[in-house]
Computed example of a mutant assay.
Amino acid sequence: MGATERPMRRKEYEVTDTAVIRHILGRATLCRVAMVDGSEPYLVTMNCGWDGEHLLLHGAIQGRKLDILHANPRVCVEVDEDVQLVFGATGEECTANYVTVIGTGTVSFVLDSSAKNRDLNVIIGQCHPGVPKEVFPDEALSRVVVLEVQFDHLSCKAKGTTPRP
């Protein structure tokens, strides 16, 4: 077990089926990406796509997140679905149901134009189903960065609901 991995405290909520975890990643359209800027945490919400191996992200070609990732490519990513607040008569009865996947890994920058095209089409296909695949012109590709997250650890937790396959 790596330095960032810990056993899940509430084992009754743990989801260990990797096929279910991959399906959740394959449905996600938004994720939260945490990184470390020197000694400060930094968190952004990004569109995402899953190619079966990597979580794919895209964004502008400059900005704080890219400066951070060039200096330290380690990230923690969170994806959730089926989030529902459960209201009760007292504070003790209030809770939330959810499915969440958390992964740690390393970001790599996709530089090859054909790989960028492929990855952007995965993201668009996942976030905007029905939009046809396209070949992006080099000028358009020069305005975006594409990132691949290679996970070294994934965990999934489901509370109050069963993850959809």
Rank of each mutant, 00 (worst) to 15 (best):
residue 49 G to M: 10
residue 71 A to N: 13
residue 54 H to A: 06
residue 35 M to A: 12
residue 69 L to Q: 07
residue 71 A to T: 12
residue 40 E to D: 14
residue 80 D to T: 09
residue 35 M to P: 07
residue 74 R to M: 11
residue 45 T to P: 12
residue 67 D to G: 15
residue 84 Q to N: 10
residue 67 D to T: 15
residue 36 V to K: 01
residue 50 W to P: 00
residue 86 V to G: 04
residue 77 V to E: 01
residue 49 G to V: 08
residue 33 V to M: 12
residue 43 L to K: 00
residue 55 L to D: 06
residue 38 G to R: 02
residue 47 N to W: 15
residue 47 N to H: 13
residue 74 R to D: 15
residue 76 C to F: 10
residue 55 L to S: 08
residue 36 V to T: 14
residue 82 D to C: 09
residue 56 L to C: 06
residue 52 G to C: 05
residue 49 G to A: 08
residue 49 G to N: 04
residue 58 H to A: 01
residue 52 G to S: 07
residue 76 C to G: 13
residue 81 E to T: 15
residue 83 V to L: 15
residue 44 V to Q: 01
residue 73 P to H: 04
residue 79 V to Q: 02
residue 64 R to V: 13
residue 39 S to Y: 06
residue 61 I to T: 15
residue 34 A to M: 04
residue 79 V to S: 03
residue 66 L to A: 10
residue 35 M to T: 11
residue 69 L to N: 02
residue 56 L to A: 04
residue 44 V to K: 01
residue 57 L to W: 09
residue 66 L to H: 08
residue 60 A to K: 03
residue 79 V to W: 04
residue 78 E to P: 02
residue 63 G to K: 02
residue 68 I to R: 01
residue 38 G to K: 01
residue 71 A to Y: 00
residue 37 D to M: 03
residue 76 C to Y: 08
residue 62 Q to E: 14
residue 71 A to G: 15
residue 34 A to F: 10
residue 42 Y to T: 03
residue 61 I to D: 09
residue 37 D to Y: 03
residue 60 A to Q: 06
residue 49 G to S: 08
residue 35 M to G: 11
residue 55 L to V: 15
residue 43 L to V: 15
residue 57 L to A: 03
residue 46 M to T: 11
residue 84 Q to I: 09
residue 82 D to N: 13
residue 49 G to D: 13
residue 70 H to L: 06
residue 33 V to H: 02
residue 52 G to N: 07
residue 46 M to S: 14
residue 75 V to L: 09
residue 49 G to T: 10
residue 77 V to M: 12
residue 73 P to E: 11
residue 71 A to C: 10
residue 59 G to L: 05
residue 77 V to I: 13
residue 38 G to Y: 02
residue 56 L to Q: 05
residue 48 C to G: 07
residue 82 D to S: 15
residue 83 V to C: 10
residue 56 L to K: 00
residue 49 G to W: 05
residue 63 G to E: 02
residue 44 V to C: 10
residue 43 L to Y: 07
residue 75 V to K: 01
residue 73 P to R: 00
residue 78 E to D: 04
residue 83 V to M: 14
residue 48 C to Y: 06
residue 39 S to I: 01
residue 44 V to L: 11
residue 44 V to G: 03
residue 69 L to E: 06
residue 68 I to V: 15
residue 72 N to W: 00
residue 83 V to R: 08
residue 34 A to L: 02
residue 38 G to W: 02
residue 48 C to D: 14
residue 79 V to P: 01
residue 34 A to H: 03
residue 57 L to G: 01
